[in-house]
Amino acid sequence: MPDAAAMEIVDLSFEEALAELEKIVRDLETGQAKLDDAIAAYERGAELKHHCEAKLREAQAKVDKIVTGPNGENRLEPEEID
């Protein structure tokens, strides 16, 4: 995993964002952080939380079927399966 702290939040996967959020929470809860750092960490933590929530909201079921055409190319067709 790349260094999550150095990355833009929008580029983070859900688990990277969640892992960083949990690290920030732990750091804050141990109370070891410097105040300025803590506030910066809190702001980043809040952004990470929103990012995680957005990722969770994205969840929509969608099922597509791969169809191979006569020339061997693949394309998608929506598939309804109960």
Binding site: L21, V25, E29, A33, Y42, G45, K49
Partner: peptide
């Protein structure tokens, strides 16, 4: 579960900072 975890993390984030402050 993830939603709950994120919510919990968010709460802990706030309370953690509050306690630190």
């Amino acid at each position: 579960e993830l939603v709950a975890q994120v919510l919990d993390d968010g709460r802990r984030l706030v309370s953690g900072l509050g306690r630190l402050l």
